[in-house]
Amino acid sequence: MPRRSASQKRAAKQARKRNSDPSVVVDIKSRNSFIETQTITARAAPPLQAKTLSQGQYITAIKSHKLTFGTGPAGTGKSYVAGAIAAEELEARRIEKIIITRPAVEAGENMGFLPGDLQEKFDPYFDAFRDCLIERLGKGAVECGLKNDRIVVAPMAYLRGKTFNDAFVVLDEAQNCTRAQLKLFLTRIGENCRVVVNGDIRQSDIGNQSGLQDAINRLGHLNSVYVHAFEHEDIVRSGLVKDIIECYEK
């Protein structure tokens, strides 16, 4: 039997390792194109489970309506539920991309100039969804999705002229959108598109210029639109957060 060179032995060893390693993450590409894989730890997320009756109603509303408004105090799971359902839709290839946006309004503190390109500047606003998507899809899949535009994170100002086709779109912190911004955003909705708009009207950083309540008043009667209002008893973040919010709003 001929002896193999050192390079041939290393190649054979790596091939055996790849074939025996079940930890594979899929780069979730278009359902019409090939699938790339890379070796990292696989993540099997459990099915999304509602923590409260109100969350269950919200999940059902998102899955059965083209446009869902979620309002209510912090800690009720509005952002997490939207992100988790978006991940499920992308993983099942019922949509081509996830689009996440929010107004670039700072919460009472000016951070000044942020270095980097557009993606890096807007990255701090994506943190609320990053952990959720990583939990549901795995870190490698999220990184690949961001790289090949299957997961798009963009500020409101960059949505003008775009159409949301074959997408799951989440607008977070919508209480900081003006009426004009919300009109611009909502008129982007195209075919096979599901949209979730989240916000707490009582926590607006732009005062009475907020367009969230205006949009709900105008659109709430439409058959394809659902408005879900969370209450203080629906807070699941912690009992302390619930007490803090009640104290501030008394």
Score class of each variant (00 low, 15 high):
2 P>G: 12
7 S>D: 13
11 A>V: 12
13 K>V: 10
14 Q>E: 14
20 S>I: 10
21 D>L: 07
23 S>N: 15
23 S>Q: 15
25 V>Y: 01
27 D>A: 13
28 I>M: 07
31 R>H: 09
40 I>W: 09
47 P>C: 04
48 L>N: 05
48 L>H: 04
49 Q>W: 03
50 A>N: 01
50 A>Q: 02
54 S>T: 10
57 Q>V: 00
57 Q>M: 04
61 A>N: 02
63 K>S: 05
70 G>W: 00
74 A>E: 01
75 G>L: 04
75 G>M: 01
75 G>N: 02
75 G>W: 01
79 S>V: 07
80 Y>K: 06
81 V>D: 03
81 V>W: 05
83 G>K: 03
88 E>Q: 11
89 E>C: 13
90 L>W: 03
95 I>D: 00
95 I>M: 04
95 I>Q: 03
97 K>E: 08
98 I>C: 03
103 P>N: 08
104 A>G: 10
104 A>D: 10
107 A>D: 12
111 M>N: 09
114 L>W: 13
115 P>L: 08
115 P>H: 07
118 L>N: 04
118 L>V: 12
122 F>E: 11
123 D>C: 09
123 D>E: 15
124 P>N: 09
126 F>D: 02
126 F>E: 08
132 C>N: 12
134 I>K: 13
137 L>E: 02
138 G>D: 06
144 C>L: 10
144 C>V: 06
144 C>A: 15
146 L>Q: 08
150 R>Y: 01
154 A>C: 13
156 M>K: 00
158 Y>L: 02
158 Y>M: 04
160 R>T: 05
161 G>L: 08
166 D>F: 03
168 F>V: 07
168 F>T: 06
171 L>D: 04
177 C>P: 00
177 C>L: 05
179 R>W: 11
179 R>Q: 14
181 Q>T: 08
182 L>D: 07
185 F>E: 09
188 R>F: 06
189 I>H: 02
191 E>T: 15
193 C>Q: 04
195 V>Q: 01
199 G>C: 07
201 I>N: 05
202 R>V: 12
204 S>I: 07
214 D>I: 12
214 D>R: 10
215 A>C: 07
217 N>G: 10
217 N>C: 09
220 G>R: 05
220 G>P: 02
223 N>H: 04
224 S>R: 14
227 V>C: 09
228 H>E: 07
229 A>M: 07
231 E>D: 11
231 E>V: 01
232 H>Q: 14
240 L>R: 10
242 K>A: 11
244 I>R: 01
247 C>H: 13
249 E>A: 06
249 E>M: 09
